[in-house]
């Protein structure tokens, strides 16, 4: 076995073996996309936690702070950020509900899983669109 140099982030030496990690030749199936986006949006929401807490605290701190917080949310760049955050929330929510249903009723086969994936993506798109529309 050919052994390469040690990686600093992994305690075992690297084993050389053929890999196909050309991302242009790998295409994720729809279910995998929904699944990995659930994970990404989850990490994103974790990073957003202090922002949410700060927003709630500032909006309840007093009349002046309340108006300042509202003023910040009226800026177009912050609205874009809010739409992004809404994507994270809606995707995590709908994909999570899909996972819960799958836990209870089973995946129901590949065909059903693909349909539910499409349903999740459609619901996310509609929800984010409605949110953005009500924001502007």
């Amino acid at each position: 076995m050919k052994v390469g140099r040690r990686r600093f982030w992994y305690n075992k030496p690297m084993i050389r073996r053929p890999k196909n990690l050309n991302l242009l030749t790998i295409r994720f199936p729809l279910n995998a996309v929904v699944s990995i986006q659930h994970r990404i949006s989850g990490m994103f929401l974790f990073l957003l936690l202090p922002c949410m807490l700060w927003g709630l605290q500032a909006s309840l701190a007093g009349e002046v702070q309340f108006q300042t917080t509202l003023g910040v949310t009226r800026h177009w760049s912050f609205k874009l950020f809010l739409v992004w955050a809404a994507w994270g929330f809606f995707h995590h929510f709908y994909a999570g509900v899909r996972h819960l249903v799958q836990d209870v009723r089973g995946t129901g086969g590949l065909h059903t899983a693909r349909i539910s994936s499409r349903l999740v993506l459609a619901l996310v798109a509609v929800s984010v669109a409605v949110f953005a529309w009500s924001l502007w």
Partner: peptide, 23 residues
């Protein structure tokens, strides 16, 4: 619930992507 959920969620993510046990 959110704290517990986030705790378990990022624990799974770290288990998948951070290979060095000490890190």
């Amino acid at each position: 619930g959110l704290v517990v959920h986030a705790w378990l969620g990022i624990r799974d993510v770290f288990r998948d992507y951070v290979f060095n046990p000490a890190w």
